[in-house]
């Protein structure tokens, strides 16, 4: 599994993905880790099939006792079906996720980890020296959905928003936005259910100062590509399955 350091100034952001060992028919996912001294959080730690490689990858950068928090943007299996495994290696950690999913997510197995529900209005998590904002992104695509914003690093973890379906081994960052559009179009039209929710999300996100927009699938957006993405997404008609 590839690992890239996205930010390193007092605290660090890592992205893990492009796992060449993952089973072929499994959708590629990006997992993120923020390390802040002796506290670290995994954002969308992934499905059970990537658990072994993911665990080995993160331990190259952090001691296991410093992995204190997990975040799940929503309840999908590619996001958090590895929970039953993390529960065994990180029994003292906390999982931050929408309050509406607790009873559902526990089906993945959770005997030890503490569930910390995020209210619909959002939340805040203080690590050691930095704070993270849990930004509501409901119906984007899940009905209880959050992004994570780090105001110091100016990185927005956007979950499925900005995701692209691409062949294995594609680069980590968008290199040519116009060419990247076709890899994103179907995903956003089909997975995102509501134009109203989309407009609400864009309005909220435009107020943030973002250097990197980091989705859970596909390439990350950097610099001007962040605004390009928001502009493109704004005019896109979504919810295509019922039209």
């Amino acid at each position: 599994m590839d690992a890239h350091k996205l930010f390193d100034d007092g605290h660090q952001w890592y992205v893990f993905g492009r796992d060449p060992e993952k089973p072929e028919k499994i959708l590629d996912t990006n997992q993120y880790m923020i390390v802040d001294g002796q506290r670290s959080i995994l954002l969308d730690p992934g499905g059970i099939e990537v658990f072994s490689t993911m665990l080995a990858s993160v331990l190259k950068y952090v001691n296991i006792e410093h992995l204190t928090d997990l975040f799940a943007s929503h309840q999908d299996p590619d996001i958090i079906s590895s929970l039953g495994m993390w529960d065994q290696v990180l029994p003292d950690s906390s999982l931050h996720c929408s309050g509406i999913w607790e009873g559902f997510i526990r089906h993945f197995g959770m005997d030890n980890i503490q569930y910390k529900p995020i209210a619909d209005t959002g939340g805040h998590l203080r690590l050691e020296s930095i704070g993270l904002d849990f930004i509501p992104a409901h119906y984007m695509h899940s009905s209880g959905n959050f992004n994570v914003y780090d105001p110091k690093a100016k990185i927005l973890f956007s979950g499925d928003v900005g995701a692209a379906l691409e062949p294995p081994g594609t680069p980590m960052f968008v290199e040519n936005f116009e060419r990247h559009i076709e890899s994103m179009r179907f995903f956003h039209q089909r997975w995102m259910p509501s134009n109203e929710a989309k407009a609400h999300w864009i309005k909220r996100i435009r107020k943030l100062d973002i250097d990197i927009l980091a989705p859970q699938h596909g390439r990350l957006f950097k610099g001007k590509d962040v605004q390009r993405f928001l502009d493109w997404f704004e005019q896109l008609d979504v919810g295509s399955a019922i039209k």
Binding site: F51, S52, T53, A56, L59, K60, M85, V89
Partner: peptide, 13 residues
């Protein structure tokens, strides 16, 4: 299953 996956992780480290 957990032990199998843990062993795979350990082999990579």
């Amino acid at each position: 299953t957990f032990l199998d996956r843990l062993a795979k992780s350990q082999a990579r480290l």
